[in-house]
Simulated scan of single mutants.
Amino acid sequence: MHKFILSLLSTPLLLGSILSMGVMINQAQAIEPENTTADRLSCIRNKHKVGLVCARASVLAQIPNYQPEAEPSKDDAPMLEFNDEESDMAINLFGCDCPACINSLRAMRGATPLVY
């Protein structure tokens, strides 16, 4: 009888199942990580950069929306309406402040694009 029990315990199949039962009894419990910050990344593809360009939402939120200072006269050529902060951020992220880059920046912010 003792030889039979020893032969069972020495088989890899039985030994493996005993070890796996021990692991199943002491299972670790995973919990959902708490999101301590709501500062998510906003990413977009741009023709001037390879891959995605990302910026923190808190940084993008600091850029004020464009507010026209005065009504342009009807004789002037149409102007693209963006502010210096948008221009600077587009240059930092994409390397230029062309209309496509300003539109990419505005898409990252969830703002309306330039009309051109």
Rank of each mutant, 00 (worst) to 15 (best):
H2E: 14
H2N: 14
K3G: 12
K3E: 15
F4S: 12
L6R: 06
L8W: 00
S10Y: 01
S10H: 02
T11D: 03
T11G: 03
P12D: 01
L13G: 02
L15I: 05
L15G: 04
G16V: 04
G16A: 14
S17F: 06
L19Y: 07
G22E: 08
I25R: 10
N26K: 08
Q29N: 13
Q29D: 10
N35M: 06
N35I: 11
T37V: 11
T37I: 11
D39R: 03
R40I: 09
L41W: 12
S42Q: 11
S42R: 13
I44E: 09
R45N: 15
N46L: 01
N46C: 14
K47V: 15
H48Y: 15
V50I: 15
V50P: 06
V50S: 15
G51K: 07
G51R: 12
C54A: 06
C54L: 09
A55Q: 14
R56A: 14
S58M: 03
V59E: 08
V59R: 01
P68I: 05
P68S: 10
E69N: 06
E69P: 00
A70H: 07
E71G: 00
P72G: 02
S73R: 06
D76L: 02
P78K: 07
M79F: 08
E81S: 07
E81M: 05
F82E: 08
F82T: 01
N83D: 12
D84W: 05
S87C: 10
D88Q: 09
D88Y: 03
M89H: 09
A90E: 06
A90T: 05
I91R: 08
N92D: 12
G95V: 06
G95K: 02
C96D: 15
C96F: 04
D97S: 15
D97V: 00
P99V: 09
C101H: 01
N103Y: 00
L105W: 04
R106Y: 02
M108Q: 10
M108D: 04
A111V: 04
A111M: 04
T112A: 04
L114R: 04
Y116W: 07
